[in-house]
Nucleic acid binder design. Structure first.
Length: 447
RNA sequence: GGCAGAUUACCCGAGUGGCCAAAGGGGGCUGACUGUAAAUCAGCUGGCAUCGCCUUCACUGGUUCGAAUCCAGUAUCUGCCA
């Protein structure tokens, strides 16, 4: 069950997609660039941290807990921040939380449901691979992957309480935001989740001792956990180490960032297709797109400022959205997959008559879209909406048609009882099904 | 361990025997207008064989012609006491 972190990091040697990434040398130092990109929300002593980051290479870390089989866009902010620091010459430690994932970081709302140790171990493996893809494992400041289970699992409860627990004051612990909000809620908080901050503090101490780690980064919601580490190290080692938290990325209209169709945008292509990811970025609001370019790309300041001007002058052209969508989708899924997605988007959202596309083009264009094979007997529009998951149930499908939101081959369907006949099939076996303006699925009819 | 309270649909939250598939809000979906944007306005938002039927108000059982509502037990959470 225990993942060997050495093996993992070697297996996931950085891909060529890291080539061409660099920081913007028009900034005085990396700290200034991070601030310009809006990546610093809170930090330990800022002038000191800026000095540390401007000096000789240091070792820093950021952790990812296995709460799902994949990382998502929120984690991508951290991954890219790590990469920026690496490009500035510092040594990254990519931590996957084999132990912390078993305990659960307290969410403000409710206790986390526990997953089995087997599941967590499996997810740890997936996350290690994903984290590794965004860091370079070559050169003077090669990244290293670590798993906190390696130093947590062998520790006895008594050692934990004496060596670590003794340094934590409950009064301080219950004041941390996540804990405090849970304590004042009806839900309360379990001792396990309450202890989470100690585990994360211990991680930082361990990495400080083992690798001389001097900086931890994370989301600003992690601030309490970040400082629990800096405080522990100060008490135990008498050393001042650093941490900073990136802001929570928000949408200007107040909705949650990083969701599409109610689902998180995952980095795993099996959980969120490159097509969906591209569409997600392309649909960014004008008010958000520049901020997103700063956070999610390595585009330089002058390029981003030019795009900001483009948004002002010709918003309908959506140049910034296109750059953002191409850039980030390429970063996560590679340029080749992204180019296919762009071609598909052109074909599917364009004005072209689908019947005029030759079969090869159609198949290529739709290769990234949800594809469902159905039996020839099942060709009612309502069935197809359900089979393709465009509608959650027959009732929902009926509503969609009633709302005027169902299209077959870009033609609106008015009658809920419509049945597809052979003449509607493209190349004798394909149908393009759409719900609303932009949710697509391809139906392939079994001969 | 004792006492008191809570548990309603994706979330918050009304409902204290029939008029309850369950008010209201949030979120979400769809439409109109647009630029596959935002804002605005409108409709929808348990399931199905859709003018009807079925399953839901923590769980199990009971009272009743009839229960989200009453009773008993169980679970989980919260508070106070020990």
């Amino acid at each position: 069950m225990l993942q060997n972190t050495e093996d993992q990091s070697q297996k996931s040697v950085a891909s060529s997609s890291l080539e061409g990434q660099s920081n913007d040398d028009s900034f005085e130092n990396i700290w200034q660039e991070l601030k310009w990109r809006g990546l610093v929300h809170v930090s330990t002593d800022e002038s000191e941290l800026e000095q540390v980051l401007s000096g000789a290479p240091i070792t820093y870390y950021c952790g990812f807990d296995p709460t799902a089989p994949s990382l998502h866009l929120g984690n991508l902010v951290q991954l890219l921040t790590m990469r920026r620091l690496q490009l500035a010459g510092h040594h990254p430690l990519g931590l996957v939380g084999g132990s912390t994932g078993m305990v659960g970081d307290p969410r403000p709302t409710a206790e986390r449901s526990m997953n089995t140790k087997e599941t967590i171990a499996e997810w740890v493996g997936y996350l290690q691979g994903q984290v590794a893809r965004f860091l370079s494992f070559e050169g003077d400041n090669a990244a290293r992957m670590v798993n906190n289970l390696d130093w947590t699992a062998p520790m006895s409860a008594i050692d934990f309480l004496r060596d670590i627990g003794k340094h934590f004051r409950v009064g301080t612990m219950i004041k941390k935001d996540n804990v405090a909000s849970r304590l004042s809620s009806d839900e309360g908080i379990s001792y396990a989740e309450f202890s989470y901050q100690i585990l994360q503090g211990m991680d930082y101490l361990e990495l400080h001792r083992q690798y001389g780690c001097l900086l931890q980064t994370g989301g600003s919601d992690q601030w309490g956990n970040l400082t629990s580490g800096t405080e522990l190290i100060r008490k135990v080692e008498g050393k001042q180490v650093h941490a900073f938290g990136t802001p929570l990325i928000t949408n200007s209209d107040g909705t949650k960032f990083g969701k599409s169709e109610g689902n998180a945008i995952w980095l795993d292509p099996n959980m969120c297709s490159p097509f969906s990811m591209y569409q997600f970025w392309l649909n960014s609001a004008d008010a958000d797109v520049i901020k997103l370019l700063k956070v999610f790309t390595f585009k330089k300041r002058d390029e981003i400022e030019a795009l900001a001007a483009a948004v002002e002058d010709r918003p309908h052209a959506r140049e910034a959205q296109r750059v953002l969508a191409f850039y980030v989708t390429s970063l996560v899924h590679g340029e080749e997959a992204t180019q296919k997605v762009i071609d598909a988007s052109g074909a599917l959202f364009g004005k072209a008559d689908l019947g005029l596309l030759d079969e090869a083009t159609l198949v290529a264009a739709t290769s990234e879209v949800t594809r469902v094979v159905v039996d020839r007997e099942e060709l009612s529009v309502l069935n197809l909406l359900v089979a393709s998951k465009l509608a959650g149930s027959l009732s929902a499908a009926r509503r969609t048609v009633g709302d005027g939101g169902a299209y077959v081959n870009n033609v609106k369907i008015a009658d809920p009882d419509s049945v597809i006949d052979d003449t509607d099939l493209l190349h004798g076996r394909y149908l393009l099904l759409r719900r609303g303006k932009r949710t697509l699925a391809v139906i392939e009819v079994e001969a």
